[in-house]
């Protein structure tokens, strides 16, 4: 009986964990990752997530983002200044110790440019986040509206 439970737990860990919304690597945790579904004619998508740095003293920088499904992925910030929508290309994003940095609608977001194949609601897109200190974190980003 105990063995069965253990086996179930292991299977759960192996099969469920990789597609769960949360990814952890050492002190960095990525949560609430998703890609906004767009009309089929659109080639540019927006991606969002929350980065949590659990280290009490180490700061990180998000330096880049990669995905095989897009020609390139950039980090952008939508800023609304005096009613004007501007997109600022971010070269890096600082993740201070013990801090949470959100990529969310009408704020920081991934600009995922030129999809290489059709994307549908429910697809899960593998994406790699490249951090300072040679850290990289693989995440799965579900596509939804």
């Amino acid at each position: 009986m105990t063995k069965k439970i253990l086996l179930t737990l292991v299977l759960f860990w192996v099969f469920v964990f990789p597609v769960a919304a949360t990814s952890v690597k050492n002190d960095l945790m990525i949560d609430d990752a998703w890609i906004r579904l767009g009309p089929s004619i659109v080639k540019v998508y927006a991606g969002y997530f929350t980065i949590i740095n659990k280290s009490p003293n180490e700061s990180f920088q998000l330096l880049g983002v990669e995905s095989d499904l897009f020609e390139k992925v950039e980090m952008h910030n939508t800023s609304i200044i005096d009613g004007m929508m501007r997109m600022e290309h971010l070269r890096h994003v600082d993740i201070p110790p013990n801090a949470k940095v959100e990529f969310s609608t009408s704020g920081k977001h991934l600009m995922m440019i030129n999809k290489k194949k059709p994307i549908q609601e429910g697809d899960v897109i593998p994406v790699t986040l490249l951090f300072s200190h040679n850290q990289s974190v693989d995440i799965s980003m579900p596509v939804r509206r």
Partner: peptide, 10 residues
Amino acid sequence: YTNCPDFCPT
């Protein structure tokens, strides 16, 4: 514009 991935869809 339609190539606007964040603000316009929102």
